[in-house]
């Protein structure tokens, strides 16, 4: 079992309280409105799905949350701190980890090294000791290596530890990417289509990992996913985007029955 635990105690936000809230966020690229005046929140400990047709602005929303994009209007409040502009580095150090729609791994590096990079912010021995690779640097390396091995066991990828990830099949790459995000011991985990391009068995494994992470460690998860079955099974609440606007928000059952959502997915003209 995984012995990695997010530092839930330090944040002071209890399960069920608002961990992150998006307030009236708008994002434009030149003339393209990727997100228009969207608000929703994510509660501590829940699995929050973000769904919608292609180009609805789902990925852009994650990019705003982890600081890749800066929305022109609106705010994002995380752990009670409202910020106009957050940088990726700050987002990462405040406990936000993510995976990417089109896997973004370090292709030349092994599975082990890729996941080790997730420990970057937890390691702080200075450059001097690292150059000597001795004393504190060595101890630190061993300690973090142990955590990474736990994650590798949890994700059942022992066999590919030493293989450069560029050589792995897509499904496994997605799993390594999840491992790298988990190595950050995040409080909020953003998953951008973690099951895209997977076969049924791989999907089932991934679902199991996501649920385990959520239930065992209480990690809050924001999940973008196209497979409706998966969304209904995994998520506590769903927000639906279409053309950059929010068209529905609620429990899976409520959202599923919403006429606007049905129209959006069936491509009804409006």
């Amino acid at each position: 079992m995984l012995h990695v635990s997010p530092n839930t105690a330090t944040t002071g936000i209890a399960k069920g309280e608002v961990l992150l809230s998006v307030e009236n966020v708008s994002l434009r690229f030149g003339g393209v409105k990727a997100i228009s005046d969207v608000s929703f929140d994510i509660l501590k400990g829940e699995v929050r799905a973000i769904i919608g047709p292609n180009g609805a602005g789902k990925t852009s929303m994650l990019n705003c949350i982890n600081g890749f994009y800066f929305p022109q209007e609106g705010h994002i409040t995380y752990k009670g701190v409202r910020r106009q502009k957050v940088r990726p580095h700050e987002a990462a150090s405040s406990g936000i980890a993510r995976t990417f729609q089109n896997v973004a791994l370090f292709k030349g590096m092994t599975t082990l090294d890729n996941i080790m990079t997730g420990r970057t912010l937890k390691m702080n021995v200075g450059l001097f000791w690292q150059l000597l690779r001795h004393g504190p640097a060595m101890r630190e390396e061993i300690e973090h290596r142990r955590k990474v091995e736990d994650i590798i066991d949890f994700l059942e990828i022992q066999a590919i530890r030493k293989i450069p990830v560029g050589k792995l099949p897509y499904g496994l790459q997605k799993r390594v990417e999840l491992g790298r995000a988990l190595a950050m011991e995040p409080e909020l985990l953003l998953l951008d289509e973690p099951m895209a391009g997977m076969n049924l068995e791989e999907k089932e494994d991934m679902c199991r990992f996501i649920l385990d992470v959520n239930q065992t460690f209480g990690t809050t998860i924001a999940l973008i996913e196209h497979d409706m079955g998966v969304v209904m099974d995994l998520s506590d609440r769903v927000v639906v985007l279409e053309y950059g606007r929010k068209i529905a928000d609620g429990t899976p059952d409520v959202v599923k029955a919403d006429q606007k959502v049905i129209d959006a997915y069936l491509g009804v003209a409006h």
Partner: peptide, 11 residues
């Protein structure tokens, strides 16, 4: 290897 992935882990 990847700027955006490096940024996402806080490098």
């Amino acid at each position: 290897d990847s700027h955006k992935a490096a940024l996402s882990v806080g490098i």
